[in-house]
Amino acid sequence: MTPVTPGWRIERRTLAHPDAAHLVERVQDEYAVLYGDPDSAPMEDDEFVGGRGAFLVGYLDETPVATAAWRWHAVPEGVRAGPAVELKRMYVVPELRRRGLARAMLAAVEADARAAGAAASVLETGLRQPEAIALYLSEGYREVPGFGHYQWSPLARCYAKEFV
């Protein structure tokens, strides 16, 4: 992929890697502001390694500024293809938004999941994140019935994209 900006690169990391952990903490702080609490959906480091998924960190020069991850997921209602992965922790630091970094991270995490054999990608997001929803819709995602940890939340929205 062509760099979004000079010095841009994406590296595979573990969820426990200091750069990944730092960015997860930042996104959790943002969720607390938006929704009153951090995201309580369970996530374990071993879900993102060894063929079970991947955790990607985007760097601008040597500074970690973005994340995107995938893990295998049961094919939820409304998804026509499988196997499926669930996208997690799509995040770009606020000071670098609107530069194409989120779109680059989404493309990278989808490519990584497809290379592992995924036929579809699903995700949960929230109504208080309209920019994220707009990104997903612009990249071919469509709304599907609720699934996962927040399936009953009135603020949650679920989306899917079939790769095939």
Rank of each mutant, 00 (worst) to 15 (best):
W72E: 08
G36M: 09
R103G: 12
E25C: 09
A74K: 11
L135H: 09
R26C: 12
A21F: 08
A132Y: 03
F55A: 04
P154K: 03
D45F: 11
A68N: 04
V92G: 01
R97N: 09
A41M: 04
Q129E: 08
A21R: 15
G146P: 01
V85F: 12
R128L: 12
M90R: 04
A108Y: 00
P38D: 06
R52A: 13
R99V: 00
A118S: 12
G82R: 09
G148K: 07
P76K: 13
T125N: 04
E62K: 01
V85Y: 10
L135C: 11
A69Y: 11
P76N: 13
Y59N: 09
M43T: 00
A32V: 01
R114H: 05
A74Q: 15
W72A: 11
E124W: 04
G100V: 03
A118H: 10
F55K: 01
Y31C: 10
G148H: 08
S138T: 10
F147V: 07
E44R: 13
R114F: 02
G126Y: 12
L127E: 11
E62L: 03
D29V: 01
L101Y: 13
L127M: 08
V33P: 03
Q129N: 06
H73N: 14
Y150P: 04
R89V: 06
P18R: 11
P42D: 12
F48D: 06
E25T: 15
A69I: 07
A107E: 12
E11H: 08
E30N: 06
H73Y: 14
E77V: 12
E139N: 02
G140F: 13
D29Q: 15
R9N: 11
K88A: 01
S153F: 05
P42W: 11
A119D: 09
A74G: 14
E110S: 00
R26K: 13
V92Q: 02
M90F: 05
R128Y: 07
A84F: 03
R71A: 12
E124H: 03
E77I: 03
Q129V: 06
L96I: 02
E86Y: 03
A120S: 15
M105R: 04
D112R: 07
E62W: 00
P38A: 12
